[in-house]
Design a protein around this nucleic acid. Structure first.
Lengths: 247, 247
DNA sequence: GAGTGGTCTAGACCACGGT
DNA sequence: CCGTGGTCTAGACCACTCC
């Protein structure tokens, strides 16, 4: 970044470290810095952008706080990966009621993969156009060997071409999005409700119709804020719960 | 803080800004700095503790990130309060499905207040001794005029003496804990499940028995990490949902 | 204008991981 | 030993609020 590129008018004031952050964000979005790889050291970045090391540090810290980067003292700064171990605490919040239960990544069984025109709800959730094609993946997820979740996943074909041809469909879809399509889920908004199991739920989860289920409606957003995936998870919480921490 | 008070051995190394933070945390815990009041400026704190302003700033920033302090440019740094407007985004996550619905603080109707010996679950949740007396408050909460939540609240008498004599029982209990007892809820862990409504739920929530409800089991912790309150909320989510954001 | 928090810099030294 | 991120300092200037 040259001095000329730095805007400093009171009118559209944006702190220097935010401008540095913007540059680094665009490198993530454009795939110049790929998940799992190391990025240049603070000193190199400071030299390159003609800014002090402390300013680069502040930008790096803000991105680390959002789990976009991982810093390791003595080694360097790395782009965060969609690893099971990371994702387990970040995006997968179901865990066993048993205190002894170590957290495992859920096994997935794909029920169906199809494509059709977006309906109203999908259009508004994914910012899709009228008549736009949408992938629909249905799957069942098992935890500790028990069928626990029935899941419907929706994503635009334009975002993930040929997604439906992926075989086998991997367990960890977020990693597929990131590694194959260069689209990283950076944030997700969820709405939780309690619902009564229907016939399909009862069949897949091996429970009675009417059993209370936890419905999680999640929209996953990319690094640039674009909605990428809509996911409706129907969870049997007899032996499991959704954990959350409030501060 | 004098130079002598600073421990710097490699063995039990603790960064200076964390030591500064510890001092400031103890002032919150001891009630020397009360919610809503202003605390000394960065410069004054730095002088008093004999460290640089930047070190104080780092300690203040970490506490601001945890919603313990609020910083206002040009005015000063304040101790966070348990205000409705704050608490709505921090600790109350139920909101109307209607997009137009502005968020309101729920109205509460107390059903009963009693005291009895702690059972196993309450003992482990609240770190209570065998036979220790526990307050039990039952209440119903209304949102937009609809009965939405049936709530059981448990807290140790030793933590909140004469809590049961409070009349009227206020709508915002966390503020009562903070203002009357000097015990601020700084963090809460939640476990969410879906359950089927029982006869009591059906009566209070005006729904059928068996209707799916969202059960929220929350433990609220004080500034020093001590568990202060156990709360079991049974929520009718036909027209409402629990919102969450994952990063 | 005085005082607060917010940004930015330059430089020093420490802790950690690998060579 | 070197290079990395982590801590700490001192000082400058900017943006905001209130008097």
């Amino acid at each position: 970044m040259t001095q000329d590129a730095i805007e400093r008018s009171t009118f559209g004031f944006r702190p220097l470290y935010m401008q540095v952050r913007d540059v680094m964000m665009s490198r993530l979005i454009d795939g110049i810095w790929k998940p799992g790889t190391i990025i240049p050291s603070e000193i190199d970045l400071a030299r390159e952008m003609d800014v002090s090391q402390g300013t680069v540090r502040k930008a790096l810290d803000s991105m680390t706080a959002e789990n976009l980067l991982v810093r390791r003292q003595g080694r360097g700064t790395f782009v965060a990966e969609m690893e099971e171990s990371n994702i387990l605490f970040q995006f997968f919040r179901l865990e066993s009621d048993a205190t002894s239960g170590s957290k495992n990544f859920p096994e997935s069984q794909v029920v169906s993969v199809s494509s059709r025109n977006a309906n109203e709800f999908e259009m508004s959730s994914l910012k899709a156009e009228v008549g736009e094609k949408i992938w629909h993946v249905e799957r069942r997820r098992l935890l500790d060997g028990q069928a626990v979740v029935v899941e419907s996943i929706f994503a635009k074909e334009s975002s993930f071409p040929a997604l439906g041809d992926t075989a086998p469909m991997p367990n960890n879809l977020y990693r597929l999005y990131s590694e194959t399509y260069g689209k990283t889920i950076a944030k997700a908004d969820e709405k939780l409700k309690a619902i009564n199991a229907n016939a399909n739920d009862a069949k897949h989860l091996n429970c009675e119709q009417g059993t209370a289920l936890l419905l999680i409606e999640r929209i996953g957003f990319g690094l640039n804020g674009e909605p990428l995936e809509l996911r409706l998870s129907r969870c049997l919480t007899a032996n499991f719960h959704y954990r959350n921490t409030l501060r």
